[in-house]
């Protein structure tokens, strides 16, 4: 009787989940498998030759241009992630520990609003803010702090980093905030009662307990930044392509779909590897907790 009921429940669950599951199968899994298959084919003139090869992957790992773009994407994504998470932590900490409970939702709402406004326009406005006659430079020259416009923030990799760090800021704050909220406040009091200083309590109690949130934030920022297409295009003017731009150029303009597919698959593998490493770290922190 119990077994049959379980079966009925399983069948009901599977029946319910099937529409979204088949949709994802058709629109997500099938295209991803197609890309995976294409990445092992040979690119011929005007058509794809059905001849299995590893050449595309050899090219991905040996071509100097691919290497430059790959390295740039990885460095930009890593720096953006580091900056975003470091800048976000104090904000999450403030909202969690110093804002009164009934006001917390409002603060989170305030923090998330900019994220929901047109991404393209926000990116473009950073070009305006950081540009030669932009807000930063005109203000600083106007105040007499600098004589000539700052050039290190002008239409280059630095401005790409600043723009992305702004774009993904709320992504970092929310998971850290959630982790901080879960911390049992009596643990902190216990640390203090046992004679720890405020800094040591933070270092030995708060930070380790907040680590799952920090790791979630790291992943949530890293993944979309490494695949960002718009910012290098708008801010860098196409002169500092990242991996997404390279995938797109190979898929469309150069019409080398096998190579484009190999680039896409490699990117997915990198993202998956980074995720696995960080999730393993997370498991370690969770173990410490017990």
């Amino acid at each position: 009787m119990a077994k049959r009921r379980l079966d009925a429940e399983a069948r009901a669950g599977l029946g319910l989940i099937s529409p979204p599951f088949f949709y994802a199968l058709l629109v997500l899994a099938a295209p991803l498998l197609t890309i995976l298959a294409t990445s092992f084919l040979t690119d011929g003139y005007l058509e794809i030759i059905r001849e299995p090869t590893l050449d595309n992957y050899v090219q991905v790992f040996t071509d100097p241009i691919v290497r430059v773009v790959m390295t740039r994407s990885l460095i930009v994504a890593a720096v953006v992630t580091l900056v975003t998470v470091l800048l976000a932590f104090p904000v999450a900490y403030y909202v969690s520990f110093h804002v009164r409970p009934e006001k917390k939702a409002m603060w989170l709402f305030l923090i998330t609003i900019p994220f929901w406004t047109s991404y393209l326009i926000r990116v473009f406005l950073w070009k305006v803010i950081l540009g030669f006659n932009g807000v930063v430079n005109t203000t600083l020259t106007g105040l007499g702090i600098i004589d000539e416009p700052l050039t290190f923030i002008l239409y280059n990799v630095n401005s790409i980093v600043i723009t992305l760090a702004h774009a993904y800021a709320p992504f970092a704050i929310l998971p850290i905030f959630i982790a901080l909220e879960k911390i049992d406040r009596s643990l902190l009091e216990a640390g203090r009662d046992l004679g720890e200083s405020r800094a040591m309590t933070f270092w030995r109690v708060t930070l380790p307990l907040a680590m799952p949130g920090v790791i979630a934030a790291t992943l949530i920022v890293f993944i979309p930044t490494i695949g960002d297409y718009v910012t290098p295009e708008v801010i860098g003017g196409g002169r500092f392509p990242m991996i997404a731009n390279m995938i797109q150029v190979n898929m469309l303009a150069l019409d080398n779909r096998p190579l484009g597919s190999a680039l896409a698959v490699t990117t997915m593998v990198i993202v998956a590897l980074v995720s696995v490493i960080f999730l393993a770290l997370n498991r370690r922190f969770l173990k410490v907790r017990r």
């Binding site: 669950g13 890309i35 997404a244 993202v271």
Partner: peptide
């Protein structure tokens, strides 16, 4: 409902959240 493969199926459906959009689009 409790059903076999729930975690895997849900993870798969939620995958677009953590997949770079350019890859989905391409």
């Amino acid at each position: 409902f409790e059903f076999p493969g729930r975690g895997g199926i849900m993870g798969f459906i939620l995958l677009p959240m953590v997949l770079p959009e350019i890859i989905v689009a391409m």
